[in-house]
Amino acid sequence: MGIYEFSVYNMMLPTIFIFVLGMTYRLSKYLFLFKRTPQPIWRKTSLLHKVLALVKAFIFPIWASIKRTKITFVTGIFLLHFLGVIPLLFLLSHHIAWWSYYFPPYSLLQPLAIPTSATSSALTVTSPVTPTSTMPQSFVNTIWGPLTVVLNGDVLAIIAIIGTSFKLLEKFPKKFKEDLSRIRIGDFTALILLLAILVSGYMATHHLPSSDIDTYKTVLGIHILTSEVLVMILPFTKFFHFVFSYWYGKLHEAYEMWRRGL
């Protein structure tokens, strides 16, 4: 059995099982530690003020990063998250097809699908979209219009790879030159895993390093298997922020802002 078959037919259920188990463990800790305590008198603010506070809780760190940590904003927030991983993971046409297979309502996002390339790829293998451009070069027709020049798998994957590589490389001097103890082995392994997923996904899409079916299946198998590893370790690593910590942290911050009238 090849790595492709192993990842698709053998690892899918264990991955989901470990993920669910891990999430249950992590979330139950929050529930067990909860204890109700008397509240201070809340400041009186309007509903609009509260909505704005919620928005501010999400926006301030980004705004502060634009002002004071520009390189981190460009690489870590903009390239890695906003332009890279988030649209790729949720909207890349191949991924929409994959998610929809396991969770059919996800196909509602089909109209927003991002093609793998601005010029040559169809949205899916089975339902190609006819190029409508009159230009000599054929363009894919997506809802994103001219934005497809950027919003396509090739460009986004390269952007995400650049962002991830930068975040990985910048950790070395911080760890070994500045001796910052907060840089941990988990920071390196998480980024290396993410990089492996991005690079193998890009290579599989382009049938690299060669176009024979066995190599293609191996590379795609690596892409799927490394992604499964990420899903399995997600509840136990910093990837947890993606499904819980980020949202919990921001909502708690907004709650504190409501109490204090900030």
Partner: peptide
């Protein structure tokens, strides 16, 4: 408590707090 547990577990070491 849930809040300090979050503070303990959730840092990804991005360093956005550093210059502030």
């Amino acid at each position: 408590n849930p809040v300090t547990l979050h503070y303990f577990e959730s840092c990804v070491s991005c360093g956005l707090c550093t210059p502030h």
